[in-house]
Design a binder for these strands. Structure first.
Length: 350
DNA sequence: GAATCGTGGAC
DNA sequence: TGTCCAAGATT
């Protein structure tokens, strides 16, 4: 047993979790159900669902005979509902093809729907004591820091490296405890935000800690380039270029809504529009622009193409009014301007 | 390789 | 309040 596993197990004996519902009566079936529920789901959330589920379906055979609707009903609120469908389907396959016993070989286990390598390893390690590595989010974080593994764990090469370390450190005895220990360490000390390295049993050997770079591991998922957002604005300015009013195109976000002229006169019109539209303040492209100048004001139709601040959809802010044009434009407006307004604001079928 | 699935928590 | 993330697997 290497020092990683030895120190981890010594820590587990003192601080590890031993009272979780699926740790009592650790049968393959119960461990399986728990592992499926725990995929991308935190322990505190899972516990009541696990209790209800195993109370209703104490055995694999009972689950296999259940109605799909009832299985889903017990899952409702937990999310990732394909997990429930896969669990039920796998139970039926096991009842039919494996005499009702979960297969004890990892390759057979992984052929069942919803069971990947890490889940299969966890089931075999925790319920049967088989020497199988796991690589869940906790283990990834612990191993990435301990060995200073660079790169986003979602990448194949990084994942392969982490699996190698997971295999290397998995001891030949106390497998169930070790598996629980590495997850407990990740969940309680080696956390994503502020790891408690002072209390970590691996502290002196952790490469990230030695370098003081704990926060860099594991590397975050690369950011996607933010989407381009295009909008056409109808803008009314006075003779000095100050904004009077502007109206969004009839379709798309804030379609047809009029904006109040609340911007600081010293602020450029473009900056104000960018801010209002949730656009990033860098390198906007101002497309075709049509300006009509009249005695007291000028009217501009401008297309702005700009990278969004966020990838998420911008929501209606609710501080726009529908009835301003009646007051300010429709009355006493030069006929050419009115025609221009109607052309721009008229609904577009596309 | 990237998108998708879902809900709740942390910052 | 937005963003990322959590005991991943599947397409």
């Amino acid at each position: 047993m290497d020092s990683f596993a030895r120190r981890l197990l010594a820590w587990f004996d003192q601080y590890g979790r031993t009272d979780l519902p699926w740790q009592r009566e650790r049968t393959p079936y119960r461990v399986w159900v728990s592992e499926i529920m725990l995929q991308q789901t935190q322990v505190a959330t899972v516990i009541p669902y696990f209790e209800r589920f195993t109370e209703r379906f104490p055995t694999l055979a009972q689950l296999a005979e259940a109605e799909p609707d009832e299985v889903l009903a017990l899952w409702s609120g937990l999310g990732y509902y394909s997990r429930a469908r896969n669990l039920h389907e796998a139970a039926r396959q096991v009842a039919r093809g494996w005499q009702g016993e979960l297969p004890g070989h990892i390759d057979d286990l992984m052929m069942l729907p919803g069971i990947g390598r890490s889940t299969a390893g966890a089931i075999l390690a925790q319920s049967l004591g088989q020497r199988q590595p796991i690589l869940d989010g906790n283990a990834k974080r612990v191993l990435a820091r301990y060995h200073a593994v660079d790169g986003w764990p979602g990448r194949t090469a990084v994942q392969r490296q982490l699996w190698e370390w997971a295999e290397t450190h998995t001891p030949h005895s106390r497998i169930a405890d070790y598996t629980q220990a590495i997850m407990d360490l990740g969940a309680t000390l080696c956390t994503r935000g502020r790891p408690d390295c002072e209390a970590c049993p691996l502290g002196s050997d952790c490469q990230a800690r030695q370098a003081g770079t704990q926060a860099r591991y594991p590397a975050p998922k690369p950011r996607k380039t933010l989407p381009l957002r295009e909008t056409t604005m109808l803008i009314a300015q006075d003779a000095n270029g100050r904004l009077l009013l502007w109206r969004r195109p009839p379709t798309g976000i804030w379609g047809g809504l009029w904006s109040l002229p609340e911007h600081d006169p010293d602020e450029s019109l473009l900056d104000w529009c960018r801010e209002s539209l949730g656009l990033e303040a860098s390198e906007p492209t101002v497309g075709p622009e049509i300006t009509h100048t009249f005695s007291h004001f000028r009217l501009t139709i401008s297309t702005v193409l700009c990278r969004a601040k966020t990838a998420t959809e911008v929501k209606d802010r609710g501080d726009f009014s529908w009835d301003l044009p009646e007051e300010l434009f429709q009355r006493g407006l030069p006929a050419p301007v009115r025609r221009l307004l109607e052309a721009v604001t008229e609904p577009v079928d596309s």
